[in-house]
Write a protein that binds this DNA or RNA. Structure first.
Length: 570
RNA sequence: UGACCUGUGGUGUAACUGGCAACACGUCUGACUCUGGAUCAGAAGAGUGCAGGUUCGAGCCCUGCCAGGUCAACCA
C-alpha cells in the first residue's frame, strides 16, 4: 500500500491528506461501520470520462488504497434515454488505463431495479409515497421556489390501496409517459426544494441498455444512488458540490432503509475546473457531434481518452490529481499545471530522438559524396540505464528552419551566415552560403564541417553557443506531425453570458505538418509510444499511423527560453 | 426575501486540540550544461474577504456584514 500523509511516494511527489481523509479518519476513530472504508466511483454512462472524472477516480480509489478499503465501479444507469453501452466500455477502459482496479465489483444501478421497486412499494405501504397524476407543470408550480414554500398536491391523501394499484399499473405500462409519477411524502414547506415531495419514479417506455424493455418505470437519481450505496455497503459516498443540497434527501432514504449501525455517508468536494477548456459532458458531446473535434478521443479534448491519445501518461494524471488537492472551494486550475505534470514524467522516461519538424536542407560541402557514418547518441540523459543508439550522418541533412537566421540578432545563438554551431552528437559546422530561390526564399544552406569535432567536441577546446538537432536526409523517416494548441482562445469559454462557448474555439488548435523528418530510430514504434524530439517537445505515436506514414502528436512542447524572450519583447 | 456551501501570495493547496503563514506551479535572477530542455542555488510575491469582539496571543473561537457558488429537470 502506498504511504500518504505527506511522505513522498515512489514517484517523488507528496500526497497530502485532504479534508475527506480527515473525516474518514474521524469516522474510523469513532468506530463507525465496523471500521470499514468502502468507496465507489459512480459514472453515468452518457459520455466519455474527462480529467474532472480522473480527479474523482483518483480520490475514490486513493482513499481505498490509503485506508485499506475497497472501491466499486458502479454505473448510474437510471435514465435509459441517455445511456449507451459504448460509454460503459469506454469508461471501463479509462479507469483501467488510469491504473485502478475494481476487481469483481462492477455494478450497475440497474442491478437494483427490482429492489428499488420493492422499496418504493414499502414506502407506499408505510404511507410515505404516493402517485401523483397531475401534469408536470402543475407539480412544478406546487413545488414553490427556493424562497417560497410549496403546497401540497391533492393526490397526497390518496389511500395506500389506491397508490399501490396505481403504481402497479404504472409499472405494467398501462399509463402514458408523463401521465403520473411516484413521489415521496416528505415536506412541501421545507426550505430545501429537494425535500418537497421529490419524484422518485417516472414512466419511461424506453429501451434500457441492460434491462431491455422489462421496465416502464425508472427510479430517479436521488432514489437510486443512496440505496445503491447502502446495498453495496459503501461507507463514504463522495460526490461533487452540487449534490450538497441533496444530502438531507440522501439521508432520509437511508433512514427508511437502515436496520443496523451501518450507514453510508455522503461527502461533497469541488469538481475540477481547468482553464482554456470546457468540462461539461453536454458541451463535450456538442463538440463531438458538430465535428469541431474529431471524436471523443481527439487529442485536444480534456477527456481521458483524448489525453491518452495526446500522449499523457496515467502517472502524470495521477500526479496531477495529487497536486491539485481536494477541497470545497471551487476554483480554476491552470492547464499549465497539467502540462507540467506530463513534462515531469516524460522527462524522466521518454526516449530521446531527433526530428525536424520544419525542414531546411543543409549540404555539408566538404563531406564526401556517398559517405555516411553512425554516431552515438544518448537515449535519455536523465536515465543512464536507457543506454544509447546510433544516429546516421551524411552529406545532406535537415535542420529546423527556426534554427537559422540570415540576419540574426545578438541574442540569437543559433546558426547564421559565417557562424559555427554544433550538430548534436555529430560535428561543428559553419554556414558559408545561403541559397535562395527566385522569390528570395531560403532553400538550402551550404556548410562545412570540422572533421576533428566528431562526436560534438573540438580537440582545440573551441566553444560554440548552440547545439542544433538534425536528421540525415537520406536516412530520415518522413512523417506527419500534428501540432496541438489549446482548444479555446478564452480562459473560460463557457463563462460568457449571451455568448456561446463555441465562439471561443481556437481556429489554430490543430496544425498538420506533413514534411517532417525523423531519425530512423522511430521506425517500428507502436501506437502511444512516447518520445522527446530533442529541443522541441514530447511526441507520441498516433493510432492513425501506418507503416508508410507514421503520425505523431505533440503532447507538450519543451520550455523554450528563446521564444519566451521574443514574446516579452512584443 | 429562503436554505446550504465557500472566501489564505498570480494559480492550487497547507498550517495538530489558537502560538509570529508553509509548499507546489508560475514569475525573476544566477550557476551548470553537447537539448536556450532538465538540474541546482537564490529572490520577489499574501498578513489570511471586511468590521468588531474574546484572548498575553486568532487564518483558526464569537458577532455582524460583504462577495461568490449551489438549489425551482418526470437529468445525473
Amino acid at each position: 500500500m502506498a504511504e500518504y500523509n505527506n511522505k513522498p511516494d515512489n514517484e517523488g511527489t507528496v500526497k497530502k491528506a485532504n479534508f475527506i481523509h480527515t473525516q474518514i479518519t474521524e469516522d474510523l476513530k469513532a468506530g463507525k461501520n465496523e471500521k470499514r472504508v468502502h468507496t465507489r466511483f459512480p459514472p453515468e454512462p452518457n459520455g466519455y470520462l474527462h480529467i474532472g472524472h480522473a480527479k474523482s477516480i483518483c480520490l475514490n480509489f486513493g482513499i481505498a488504497e490509503k485506508f485499506g478499503g475497497k472501491t466499486n465501479l458502479r454505473f448510474d444507469d437510471t435514465n435509459p434515454s441517455k445511456e449507451e453501452t459504448e460509454y460503459v466500455e469506454s469508461i471501463k477502459e479509462d479507469v483501467r488505463w488510469l491504473g485502478f482496479d475494481w476487481e469483481d465489483r462492477l455494478y450497475f444501478a440497474s442491478d437494483y431495479f427490482e429492489k428499488l421497486h420493492d422499496f418504493a412499494i414499502k414506502l407506499i405501504k408505510d404511507g410515505k409515497a404516493y402517485v401523483d397524476d397531475q401534469d408536470a407543470e402543475t407539480i412544478s408550480n406546487q413545488k414553490g421556489t427556493p424562497t417560497r414554500p410549496g403546497f401540497e398536491s391533492p393526490c397526497r391523501t390518496r389511500s395506500v390501496e389506491e397508490n399501490l394499484d396505481l403504481f402497479a399499473r404504472m409499472t405494467n405500462g398501462e399509463f402514458d409517459e408523463g401521465s403520473c409519477v411516484l413521489r415521496a411524502k416528505i415536506d412541501m414547506a421545507s426550505p430545501n426544494m429537494h425535500m418537497r415531495d421529490p419524484i422518485i419514479y417516472r414512466i419511461m417506455k424506453a429501451h434500457h441498455h441492460r434491462t431491455g424493455d422489462k421496465w416502464c418505470v425508472y427510479p430517479m437519481y436521488d432514489f437510486a444512488h443512496g440505496q445503491s450505496d447502502y446495498w453495496e455497503g459503501i461507507t463514504h459516498s463522495i460526490c461533487t458540490l452540487e449534490f450538497e443540497v441533496h444530502r438531507p434527501l440522501y439521508d432520509w432514504f437511508i433512514d427508511q432503509l437502515q436496520e443496523t449501525d451501518y450507514r453510508p455517508r455522503q461527502i461533497e468536494f469541488a469538481r475540477l475546473n481547468l482553464n482554456y477548456t470546457v468540462m461539461s459532458k453536454r458541451k463535450l458531446l456538442e463538440l463531438v457531434k458538430d465535428k469541431h473535434v474529431n471524436g471523443w478521443d481527439d487529442p485536444r479534448m480534456p477527456t481521458i481518452s483524448g489525453l491518452r491519445r495526446r500522449g499523457y501518461t496515467p502517472e502524470s494524471i495521477r500526479n496531477f490529481s495529487d497536486r491539485i488537492g481536494v477541497t470545497k472551494v471551487d476554483g480554476v486550475i491552470d492547464v499549465t499545471l497539467l502540462e507540467h505534470s506530463v513534462k515531469e514524467h516524460l522527462n524522466r522516461t521518454a526516449q530521446r530522438v531527433m526530428g525536424v519538424i520544419n525542414p531546411l536542407k543543409v549540404v555539408i560541402t566538404n563531406y564526401p559524396e556517398n559517405q555516411s557514418e553512425e554516431l552515438d547518441a544518448v537515449n535519455n540523459p536523465e536515465d543512464a540505464s536507457m543506454g544509447s543508439r546510433k544516429v546516421p550522418f551524411s552529406k545532406e541533412l535537415y535542420i529546423e528552419r527556426d534554427d537559422f537566421m540570415e540576419d540574426p540578432p545578438r541574442k540569437f545563438f543559433r546558426l547564421g551566415p559565417g557562424r559555427e554551431v554544433r550538430l548534436r552528437y555529430a560535428y561543428f559546422v559553419t554556414c558559408n552560403d545561403v541559397i535562395k530561390d527566385a522569390n528570395g526564399n531560403i532553400t538550402e544552406l551550404h556548410c562545412t564541417y570540422d572533421p576533428a569535432s566528431k562526436g560534438g567536441n573540438s580537440p582545440d577546446g573551441r566553444k560554440v553557443k548552440a547545439t542544433l538537432h538534425w536528421v540525415s536526409a537520406k536516412h530520415a523517416i518522413k512523417s506527419e506531425v500534428r501540432m496541438y494548441d489549446r482548444l479555446f482562445r478564452d480562459e473560460n469559454p463557457d463563462g460568457h453570458k449571451d455568448r456561446d462557448f463555441k465562439e471561443f474555439l481556437n481556429p489554430d488548435s490543430l496544425k498538420l505538418l506533413n514534411d517532417c523528418y525523423l531519425e530512423p530510430f522511430v521506425q517500428g514504434a507502436k501506437t502511444l509510444d512516447h518520445f522527446q524530439f530533442e529541443r522541441l517537445g514530447y511526441f507520441n505515436v498516433d493510432p492513425d499511423s501506418t507503416d508508410e506514414k507514421p503520425v505523431f502528436n505533440r503532447t507538450v512542447q519543451l520550455r523554450d527560453s528563446w521564444a519566451k524572450q521574443q514574446n516579452k519583447k512584443q
